[in-house]
Amino acid sequence: MSIATCRVDTMDEQDKFALLTQVIEEYERKPSNLIQVLHYAQSIFGFVGADVQRVIAQKMDLPLAKITGVLTFYSFFSTAPRGRHIISVCLGTACFIRGGQPILDHLKEILGIDVGETTEDQRFSLEIRRCIGACGMGPSLIIDEQVFKRLNVSGIEQILDEFE
């Protein structure tokens, strides 16, 4: 089974839940596969909300508290919808030393949101990453899959304009 071949964006809620059930069955409902199931759930729904958590709990025969407990432990998972574009500012040590913090502060200011939040128009979510591996080119940030490097504060607006 490959999620990559499913057009998740064109599926309706019912199909999404059917796919989730299929994933859980592929993983044999084993509790040890919970984190892998959550990864798929996040790819399918974009985030793992309360309704999805309930379905996973039911299908895997685990307490809801267990699902929520594991889910919220890991920073990779989100329990709320995220924006159309995810801005991840690299704050690995190298980017930090080279001025990543002012970049983040500037983004917070122009977007009016804090780290982990989404703009009201659902356009952007703001995140921090600890090292994206482009240490020689810092400070850097990633929007969706695209990497922007050797940034300075004044060029940020121009970059955002590329994303609708």
Binding site: S32, I35, Q36, L38, V70, F76, R130
Partner: peptide, 18 residues
């Protein structure tokens, strides 16, 4: 899934166990 602590052996094992 994004947890620095999971580099610690016993925490890593817990994470592999779900």
């Amino acid at each position: 899934a994004g947890a620095f602590i999971c580099g610690e052996e016993t925490a890593l094992i817990a994470s592999v166990e779900g």
